[in-house]
Design a protein around this nucleic acid. Structure first.
Length: 265
DNA sequence: ATGGCTTGAGTGTCAAGA
């Protein structure tokens, strides 16, 4: 069963890419970020026609997250939580749900997050990112108490270490790569979550995001900032993980590409 | 080099992303 995450950078523009990817990759569960749609404009029918249950939380212009679950194997999401109950936020950045198999067995708690970008180290938005991440860790800690099988997927807007950066010198202590941001990620690891990508051997220089400018994708000047974090129980059941750069090669792509982990459920 | 693309909003041009 494939668990995946994709920052689509406008679901209105990227819907054809998403529908194609659902057919070719058939993820069991998928978290989307940057849908950039209000809920009245969400393409629910198109996604349901592709065989997926979907829940979503949007706002005008920015942010927006969604969870897709394969309707052939799972019930519609239960106990849907939008945003962090410990952190009042007018930005739509988190959605969580309990996922049950059609036979009734609980599969996991699935959380999709669009972590703030932070703009620039030391800026007001950077401060928001840090407060957001502190509250996020407190909430995840609570969630793990009741949900030992937990997957937290999303655009974390943090490259875990220098292996995840095309040019570590260029990005040294810059936004997405600063020590402070990496410590927030470490705090999530200390709660017992693992970066699914690093559970398995991986080719060097694989990234999940490339700037639209200066032919960054062609030159593979990217960062790995889209992650699948698994609780210990799910990490033990993770058989493979990777990044699918295929959608980044299409016409009018998202600047992010899907990341995935295979988990025995 | 603070640009360089892309999106949404909205019709001129800017904010925001990473």
């Amino acid at each position: 069963m494939k668990i995946a995450s994709w920052n689509v950078n406008s679901l209105r523009v990227r819907l054809p890419h998403l529908l194609d990817w659902l057919v070719t990759s058939r993820p069991a569960m998928l978290g989307l970020q940057e849908t950039k749609l209000t809920d009245d404009k969400f393409p629910q029918k198109e996604i349901e026609s592709a065989g997926y249950h979907v829940v979503f939380a949007g706002q005008p212009t920015y942010n927006g997250v969604a969870l897709l679950v394969d309707a052939a194997h799972f019930q519609p999401p239960h106990n849907v939580q939008i945003n962090n109950p410990l952190f009042p936020d007018d930005q739509a950045r988190l959605i969580a749900a309990d996922i049950y198999a059609t036979q009734g067995k609980k599969a996991m708690r699935l959380i999709c997050g669009y972590i703030p970008n932070g703009s620039e180290v030391g800026s007001e938005k950077f401060d928001y990112k840090r407060r957001w991440l502190t509250a996020c860790a407190a909430w995840i800690q609570q969630e793990l108490v009741t949900h030992p099988r937990l997957a937290f997927v999303g655009d974390f807007n943090i490259a875990p270490d220098d292996r995840d950066v095309h040019d570590p010198a260029l990005w040294h202590e810059k936004i997405l790569c600063s020590t402070a941001e990496r410590q927030h990620l470490e705090a999530l690891f200390k709660l017992g979550l693992s970066d699914a990508y690093r559970l398995h051997e991986q080719p060097a220089q694989q990234y999940s995001w490339w700037d639209y400018r200066e032919a960054a994708f062609r030159r593979n000047r990217g960062l790995r900032i889209d992650l699948i974090l698994l609780s210990a129980e799910l990490a033990a059941a993770c058989t493979a993980s990777g990044i699918d750069a295929g959608p980044r090669r299409l016409e009018k792509p998202s600047d992010h590409t899907p990341v995935w982990a295979d988990v025995r459920l």
